[in-house]
Computed example of a mutant assay.
Amino acid sequence: MSKRILMVLSEYGYWAEELVGPLEVFDARGYRTTFATPTGKRARALPPSLDPEYVDPPLGRTVTTPDMARRGRELDESNRLDNPLSLADLIPERPYYSAINHLRALEEYHRRLDEALEGVLSSFDALVIVGGSGPIVDLANNERLHELILAFVAADKPILGECYGVAPLAFARDLETRTSLLWGKHVTGHPKEYDYKDGTGFLGVEFNMGPPPYPLEYILRDATGPDGGFHGNVGKELSVIVDYPFVTARSTPDSTLAGELLVEVLENGLRRYGW
Rank of each mutant, 00 (worst) to 15 (best):
G131D: 09
T200P: 03
K3H: 14
W183C: 09
Y194R: 08
P253D: 10
E108S: 14
P245E: 02
A116C: 12
F246Y: 06
L175V: 13
L90Y: 02
P22L: 05
A36T: 06
K236T: 02
P213K: 03
Y273H: 15
V265N: 04
R70M: 13
E260V: 05
S239L: 02
A69N: 09
D82T: 11
A170F: 06
S2Y: 06
I159K: 06
H146V: 05
N101D: 15
F152W: 11
G228K: 02
E11N: 03
L270Q: 07
T33Y: 00
S239A: 15
Y214Q: 00
L150K: 09
V137Y: 14
L175G: 04
M1P: 12
D114N: 15
A223I: 01
L46S: 14
E11R: 03
E143S: 13
Y54G: 05
E147V: 00
S255M: 04
W15Q: 10
H231C: 01
G225A: 05
E162F: 13
G132H: 12
A249W: 02
V234Y: 11
T33W: 01
P226C: 00
G40I: 06
P213Q: 04
A116Q: 09
G132A: 12
G274W: 07
L150S: 05
H110L: 12
R104W: 14
P84F: 04
E193G: 03
G165Q: 11
P226D: 10
T39M: 10
I241D: 01
Y214T: 08
R80D: 07
L9Q: 05
T39R: 14
L238A: 01
E193F: 03
E74A: 14
V187T: 03
A116D: 10
R271H: 10
L46C: 02
V8W: 10
W15H: 12
R221T: 09
N142V: 07
Y31M: 07
R272L: 12
N233L: 12
S251I: 13
P58A: 08
N101P: 03
K157I: 08
A69Y: 13
P22V: 03
A36M: 11
L85V: 08
